[in-house]
Amino acid sequence: MHLEEFAEGNSILHRLDPRVKLMAAAPLALLVALMQGFQGPARGLLLAVALVAIARLNIKKVAVRLAVVNVFVLMLWAFVPFSYPGTEAFSIGPLAASREGLALALGITLKCNAIVLATIALLGTSQVMNLAHALVHLKAPEKLVHLFFFFYRYLGVLHDEYARLRTALRVRAFAPGTDVRTYRAFAWLLGMLIVRSFERSRRIYQAMLLRGFHGHFPVIDHFTLGKKDMAFGALMAVALLIIWRGL
């Protein structure tokens, strides 16, 4: 499973302290999500595009992500302008699209793309484990972070288990269709995956006890807050103010 597609680059954003990036991404996303109209969201989108450019990400991969996210946005365009009351902009047969509805759909499109791009540029450029570690520093509940840690650590392992079970089905000439046989086969496969995950978790816990686990993980890597991190934090604060208030 190749998951952290955007974390492998080498830009200033990749090197920044993940704590600072989290502290910048969360308020930015929240601010854009809560704004009305489309001027604010448009400014947010501008900043997000700039961040993606600074992160020097693979444009093709970013475009693929955006395309997936915009499928739902497209559905909105198909429904919202025709359901929102207001002055008519154009009509297709009996359906009339309102200007207000079109403005709303545009606002949502800008917001959605702005937040998604900002998330990719700010959070996608960190290793997931580093983000989890940063959450500990930002006082997230420790149990929740531990849960996340084990979940992410064993995701790849369980995916391999799943791939093995799928191979076992395939070598037995399994051809999925819409029938009870298929559903039962999938159910047994998933049931087996759950059983194996349960048994593995037992072994993990025993191994932890063996190594003296008592509810606490020692941290080996430490973050250092440098001048660049401080400067980036300050810049982002100014950018947020501009997005909120305009120039």
Partner: peptide
């Protein structure tokens, strides 16, 4: 969820995450 549960809940969550990627034909 006490500490003894964490590995169990976590690895089960991984299994469910993987399971949610399965496409079932309809």
């Amino acid at each position: 969820m006490d500490y003894t549960h964490i590995p169990e809940v976590a690895v089960l969550t991984s299994a469910f995450f993987v399971a949610s990627l399965v496409r079932v034909p309809v």
